[in-house]
Nucleic acid binder design. Structure first.
Length: 926
RNA sequence: GGGCGUUUAGCUCAGUUGGUAGAGCAUCGCCCUUACAAGGCGAGGGUCAGUGGUUCAAGUCCACUAACGCCCACCA
């Protein structure tokens, strides 16, 4: 970290070096304190890589952690990664498939070894990327869901739940993924409307010639597993058939006609075929009527009916054949187009099959009850609050959670079977053996647990549970969970349930739910659409060819490549510039509004990169004017100017707002507050005004010292305010100026977050400063409208000056002269003495610039008319209100007073403008 | 079928307990003024999706409508 600042901000020159310095110095370790602050990261997939959603989320978590560290809390941002069972297994399987190897060729043990190898190889990607984001993480505490300790927690939880009958094993209909050959939970099934058909099939009524019952189905191939036909008990058309049987086509079986509410007389023919082994509804109907479960599919979802013509056929092929056969037999009544909801596995996209298997379940209802209560009672708060509804809706109607998966990568279920199939659930094989008795041969259950089972323990398993560790004591319950709405059910709800169950406490006090990061068009970013942005590319920049290559590589549908390439070339003709981490983080903060998705806009990143540059250059200015000079670090008289007092006063207000905004999770407002303070107040006004003192040879040592001190100290404080959002640039600049500001410390991240001092709020200086600003802005406006060069010094006359104006003028004329670039200021003693001029109004004060070579009377008339129009519009609005008796009668006094004042001001303005207009027109006509 | 969200300047978005609309970017004009052209100064631009209601007063509260989006749900 050098002291000489380049004259242009170049993030690449500072960011990585600073991070390394922090890490080398172990600066991220928590500092001991009484109060604690803890956030656990939603663990990303261990072999994944950082996407925009992560970058956004990480920015917020890091911002909060850094803020609390600066506030003096003992902070822990607990990070780590998730083994992501199915996702990771699929990745590795795909890699093996490239060499024509299946996992079955390798066998379970070898395959798992391969996955660990892959983790070792690619597992560092995401943590490297987190470092690039500037994340203040104590890396010694990094955890992985399949670490030994976390795995013990999983076993402990499983055993305890089993012992309390909250985990059970049973044969149920599950969502079966025929590609993965595993059960998945309800949440892993995504239903979407698709075009299909509704087949109306004729089932001959047994023993009756030419009498058919027409059933409507979207799944004709499951006919082979039908065990009844249901009609509504109230349906007059079929009442007489209840209790009879039909001859099930394509089989030798006869099945009963039963009465059940499930059959809707309005839908289709009013008759439903009942296939209890292959449909969730039918399963329930089957239970009510004691119907047999006839399984006709195998784990690939092919027909499994040895001896049948359809045996071994894929379900969709079987469907075709069966329909053709039925048609031949004259048993197809009609085929109608029909839109239906098709359930697909979220990983494979294959059609999910309801399938009868043995699985492990968590009985969630008793857990959900407690989890609902803590949110109702406000022990856990969702931010924004509207997510409560979503949470309650789901929790109130929650189904048991199928937790077993027929895959290999994950926590193996801690259950063993003896030769008779008797199950022993235990923490480990020894314990199981002890339960079973010596000499009994045990085999462990082959299944592994749903990944979300271990994720549900994350807030306490990472802190050492089930051991009673100091970390658990210190940091649990954690403070806030920062996450996306998409995993409220998968993760948040389950953490709450398990947290309460096993620690007796909520896992976190608040849940900050953020939106999704979308592309500029508002589309979800996805690899297949080729609209993904890599946060690292925004930080480092990327040339067009590399970007195109990256976006078109490894597509599932290679034919999309051309389209993606075209679209990419159009959107980024010059690739992407390097903006740096700080600009990216500031962008995320500025877009972090509550309850809304983010449309990611590159123009904004550029704007905030420019903001970094502004801050950088302001700091250069400060350095140039304070380095090697006396800034009052060692005492000495200090005299503060109006500008000094004003900026210090404003700073107090900004400090107050900043803290409130962070505490309220309004990072967008925080960004806005700091941006405008730095740019519009510190740079545009304050820095400019300091030049007057700093370049004034007649200024006293105390005045110079006061200005230098204020210049550097306000900057130093501002850097601390900005640090949680922009860690790198603030550290770099802070290192350069800290000595001048009279502060010490190794790193800005351990300095206190600024807090306002009420004594430094100086409303008088704010008022007087406003006067100075108004006079200067008034003249600037005339310059702008008249196209007068800023370098041209203007003679200025003041007319109708009040005592108050005269006082201000006496004190601050040097500001006006230099900053306003006035040639002279003269106060007119008599109204009538004013020459023809362009006029700016500051309250009742008239600031005049006499007509001359650079002031055009006609242009002034145009300008005055514009102003007049505004004034008249104001008057119309306010007068309208005041003339309404009801308003004067009922509105609160301060509102009325304010309106009266507005009216008076507007009318003063209007009168002055009219007078000027008159003079101008008279002048022109002369 | 339920539930939720969004609709404000050309674009992306703010707008706290109702007091008469703001920012950034883009646009237009003038400036290379000794921190910064990734800059300075000035300007233009909005019937706050629509209708109705409450109120002295509605972008803000209520009801309905429309469009878009998301979540949940077994209609075969």
């Amino acid at each position: 970290m050098s002291n000489a600042l380049d004259n242009q901000y170049q993030p690449s020159k500072i960011e990585q070096a600073i991070y390394k310095a922090w890490e080398d110095r172990n600066a991220f370790a928590a500092r001991d304190a009484d109060s604690a602050y803890c956030i656990v990261i939603p663990p990303p997939n261990v072999t994944g890589s950082l996407h925009m959603g992560h970058a956004f989320q990480d920015t917020i978590m890091d911002l909060l952690t850094r803020y609390h560290r600066m506030k003096g809390d003992q902070t822990l941002w607990q990070v780590g990664t998730d083994h992501a069972g199915i996702a990771t297994q699929m990745v590795v399987e795909r890699r093996l498939a490239a060499d024509n190897i299946s996992r079955h060729d390798l066998g379970r043990e070898k395959f798992i070894e391969k996955i660990w190898e892959w983790k070792a190889e690619s597992g560092g990607t995401i943590t490297r990327q987190l470092r690039r984001m500037g994340a203040a993480i104590d890396w010694t505490r990094e955890r992985f869901t399949m670490d030994e300790g976390l795995s013990e927690a999983v076993e402990e939880v499983f055993v305890r739940l089993y012992e309390e009958d909250l985990i059970y094993r049973g044969q149920r209909l599950v969502n079966w993924d025929p590609v993965l050959h595993t059960a998945v939970s309800d949440l892993e099934v995504e239903s979407a409307e698709e075009n299909g058909s509704l087949w109306h099939l004729r089932y001959p009524v047994s023993g009756e010639q030419d009498t058919y019952l027409v059933v409507a189905t979207t799944r004709p191939e499951t006919l082979l597993g039908d065990s009844a036909v249901a009609v509504n008990p109230e349906d007059e058309r079929y009442k007489h058939l209840i209790g009879k049987t039909v001859d099930l086509p394509l089989t030798e079986r006869q099945i009963p006609i039963v009465a059940d509410e499930h059959a809707d007389p309005e839908f289709g023919s009013g008759c439903v075929k009942i296939t209890p082994a292959h449909d969730f509804n039918d399963y329930e109907v089957g239970k009510r009527h004691d119907l047999p479960l006839i399984n006709v599919l195998d784990k690939n979802a092919s027909i499994d009916l040895p001896g049948s013509d359809y045996h071994g056929l894929d379900r969709f092929e079987a469907r075709k054949r069966m329909v053709a056969d039925l048609q031949e037999m004259g048993l197809v009544d009609a085929i109608k187009d029909h839109k239906l909801m098709v359930p697909r596995g979220d990983r494979t996209g294959s059609v999910i099959e309801p399938y009868l298997t043995d699985q492990w379940y968590v009985k969630v209802e008793p857990l959900a009850k407690e989890a609902i209560k803590v949110v109702e009672d406000g022990e856990i708060k969702f931010v924004p609050e509207s997510w409560n509804t979503t949470y309650f809706n789901w929790m109130n109607d929650i189904q048991d959670w199928c937790i077993s998966r027929q895959i290999w990568w994950g926590h193996r279920i801690p259950a063993w079977y003896d030769e008779d199939g008797k199950v022993y659930v235990a923490r480990n094989e020894e314990e199981a053996q002890a339960k079973a008795g010596a000499g009994v041969t045990l085999t462990q259950d082959n299944d592994v647990l749903d990944t979300w089972f271990s994720s549900a323990l994350w807030p306490f398993s990472t802190l050492g549970w089930p051991e009673k560790t100091p970390e658990l004591n210190k940091y649990y319950p954690t403070n806030v969970l920062v996450t996306g709405f998409d995993i409220i059910f998968f993760w948040v709800a389950r953490m709450i349930m398990f947290g309460l169950k096993f620690t007796g406490q909520v896992p976190f006090r608040e849940v900050y739910i953020h939106g999704l990061v979308r592309d500029q068009e508002g589309d979800k970013m996805s690899k297949s659409k080729g609209n993904v942005l890599d946060p690292i590319d925004l930080i480092d920049g990327i040339d067009l060819e590399s970007l195109v290559a990256k976006r078109t590589k490894g597509l599932m549908q290679p034919k999309m490549a051309a389209k993606i390439e075209k679209q990419t070339r159009k959107q980024f003709p010059n690739g992407i510039e390097s903006y740096g981490t700080d600009a990216l983080r500031f962008t995320f903060a500025s877009q972090a509004t509550l309850g809304r998705d983010i449309r990611f806009d590159l123009a904004r990143v550029e704007g905030y990169r420019n903001f970094c540059n502004k801050l950088w250059n302001a700091s250069r200015f400060v350095l140039m004017n304070t380095e090697g000079r006396d800034c009052g670090q060692n005492g000495g008289d200090i005299e503060l100017s109006l500008a000094d007092r004003w900026i210090i006063s404003r700073l107090q207000e900004v400090e107050k707002e900043a803290a409130e905004q962070i505490d309220g999770y309004r990072f967008d407002q925080l960004a806005q507050t700091l941006y405008s303070f730095v740019w519009d107040e510190y740079c545009s006004w304050y820095v400019e005004l300091t030049k007057i003192v700093l370049n004034d040879e007649t200024a006293s040592e105390a005045q110079q010292r006061g200005t230098r001190q204020t210049l550097v100290r306000v900057l130093e404080t501002t850097l601390r305010l900005l640090h949680p959002i922009m860690p790198f640039i603030t550290e770099e600049l802070w290192q350069s100026i800290k000595d001048l500001a009279g502060v010490d410390g190794d790193t800005i991240m351990n300095k206190e977050f600024p807090t306002p001092d009420a004594d430094k709020i100086d409303s008088q200086s704010v008022t007087e400063m406003k006067w100075v600003q108004n006079v200067i802005t008034g003249v600037r406006n005339i310059r702008g409208e008249m196209n007068i060069s800023p370098s041209k010094a203007l003679p200025v006359l003041l007319n109708n000056a009040s005592q108050h104006d005269l006082n201000n003028l006496e004190q601050y004329s040097h500001y006006l002269m230099k900053f306003g670039r006035f040639e002279s200021i003269d106060v007119l003693s008599q109204e009538s003495a004013a020459p023809e001029s362009a006029t700016a109004l500051v309250g009742s004060l008239k600031v005049l610039i006499p007509l001359g070579s650079f002031i055009d009377a006609e242009a002034e008339v145009v300008r005055l008319n514009k102003e007049l129009e505004k004034a008249e519009k104001d008057i119309a609005g306010v007068a309208g209100r005041l003339n309404n008796p009801a308003f004067v009668d009922k509105a609160p006094e301060p509102v009325i007073a304010k309106a009266r004042q507005q009216l008076q001001e507007a009318e003063t303005t209007k009168a002055a403008l009219l007078e000027q207009l008159e003079r101008m027109t008279a002048f022109i006509s002369k």
